[in-house]
Design a protein around this nucleic acid. Sequence first.
DNA 1: ATATTTTGTGCAACCGTTTTCGCATTTGAA
DNA 2: TTCAAATGCGAAAACGGTTGCACAAAATAT
Lengths: 337, 337
Amino acid sequence: MGANIKDVAKFAGVSPSTVSRVIHDNSRISQATKERVRNAMVELGYVPNAAASSLAGRTPRTLGLVLPNNPGELFKNPFFINAMRGISVYAQARGYFLLYSFSRDEEDEIQFIRNYINSGWVSGVILLAARKDDRCVDYLKLSDFPFVLIGHAADPLTTCWVDNDNFQAMYQVVTYLLEKGHRKIGFLGGPETFRVTQDRYNGYIQALKGRGFPLEEELVFMGDDFTEDSGMKGGKEILGSIMPDAIATTDDQLAFGLLKYMEENGIEGIAVTGFNNTVRGIYQRPGLTSVDVNADLLGERAAELLINLLETDESERQNLSPNHYFVETKLIPRETA
Amino acid sequence: MGANIKDVAKFAGVSPSTVSRVIHDNSRISQATKERVRNAMVELGYVPNAAASSLAGRTPRTLGLVLPNNPGELFKNPFFINAMRGISVYAQARGYFLLYSFSRDEEDEIQFIRNYINSGWVSGVILLAARKDDRCVDYLKLSDFPFVLIGHAADPLTTCWVDNDNFQAMYQVVTYLLEKGHRKIGFLGGPETFRVTQDRYNGYIQALKGRGFPLEEELVFMGDDFTEDSGMKGGKEILGSIMPDAIATTDDQLAFGLLKYMEENGIEGIAVTGFNNTVRGIYQRPGLTSVDVNADLLGERAAELLINLLETDESERQNLSPNHYFVETKLIPRETA
DNA sequence: ATATTTTGTGCAACCGTTTTCGCATTTGAA
DNA sequence: TTCAAATGCGAAAACGGTTGCACAAAATAT
């Protein structure tokens, strides 16, 4: 390993404490000394020992990421890798390291977080997949450990989080469909209990209202989950009654199920939109019109929020502002709408 | 933060040194004492402070991952996320943390590795994307820092690496094509300078030879890179002369280019195979027959190799065996072949 | 000219763990 | 019974930074 703080001190003709203060840009050190020490640092190729630094009281400049371990989801949806990249880009710029781990289940995740915290290896956590009633969130709050959530927090006032503006996103989708000339527009969502479903549903309703179109309950269906099967079921329900000329779904998987149902039943000419811009939707024919949730930027913003949180004094954290970010989505028109 | 080693010592009625020895299962501590201390540890929810531990001489149980930052590649090919998952699964089982970073370029990567090493935060490195004449490899060797490579090492004897058996993989592809009744089989590869191209080309040759088929030079083309464009160019070259009835490519992107060329020129009935089992190949119609390189397992094996390396004494590392693993590939037949 | 504040730096204790050395105590051999 | 070796554990010095405190020198106020 390279030079340590003593080597630098000796080289610059000062004491180790002075070097340390130069590293942290302490105002009590004169410019002349700072310059001399900094030269010594580059001269010797000095990199501070992170272990010693965090042991001695500084917060370790490392963030811990908690990822779900759902093999299918991981490769169908480039969300996670892109979010991780976004986080990496930002964290790098601020000089933070990143720890990650895929966990099998909630129990596993809590275990990880416990290890992150107690090992002293990590100063903050980013949760990349928020569940409803997430025990990880509870655990982190209970431990009073800094974290941010990607996704809408159950308690948005006392939690830091980043998310898309799901209302706005769906509003935009429906408006787009209306402008395309569609009049009877259905809605196929995930479980009602999810915040994201609610938000998007509200966006759907408002977009219709805004243009003076009525909400027709028969054209609305909420699945039990986000699977293709639920999509097919939704197709059966919605297309069984009145025929809409477009259906906005809240997830590409649902859309795939819906398209499958339509194909199997020879139904054509209905516009379909999805959410998440998954790879399958991009490459299938016809390409699925979908909403890109901008995972990259979600990641960057999450990292930004967390690092800002970490770098504000403990006493002021309560009223950190902002405690959340909304990230723009982008509608990607393709053949299905 | 939780309890420290002194708390545990007090609780168990021993000295901190004894607790430390129990943690590392030192043979000089009696079973009775070990039990008592271990009880104290669970009782107090003790997790060793990783910073202190690594400061005091232990190697930090953390591995650093170096990833390329090629946005397109990252989401078209689920290789990286799967490899990362594989690494995570194995590292977790052995009690290691994982650091990752996406780098813009080679310069950036070296910078990261330097930080990894000098910060004392990391005890070994996994390179997920090996280039030819990789400066990172040189740097790591020069620093005498433990690392493994995913991909074939330039110097396979003195480097630790994991890779697919590319010879075998292509042998299998060609054999499959021959068994399907194809007789004139072409080869469309990436740059010749790449080891992987060579290996797969040799597999192609041997598979033909093995069954007594001649190698026809006009049916072989090596592109300048792994892009769709090169695939189209290859199609033009190979399909311009004698018509083969199948073409084995060394990369899905090349295969996509080839298929595109065929479509644009109205050429049909030629079997095509790819490599990497990318998402586009899975979802396009017709589905692309491709070789799954088993990224998950590559990741696991890489982690295994590195951790084993780290846990053998410095003096014995020279003749660590094995210093590499071959990971099975899996041919995934779809419509194009 | 003296008193007071500000500025610049060093000393030394501390963070939590590891590990060498050393000292009892027990075990086994002579 | 005596001595050497093995066993079981504690004391204390690292590891590399950080930071409160002290203190001298310089700047400013009186």
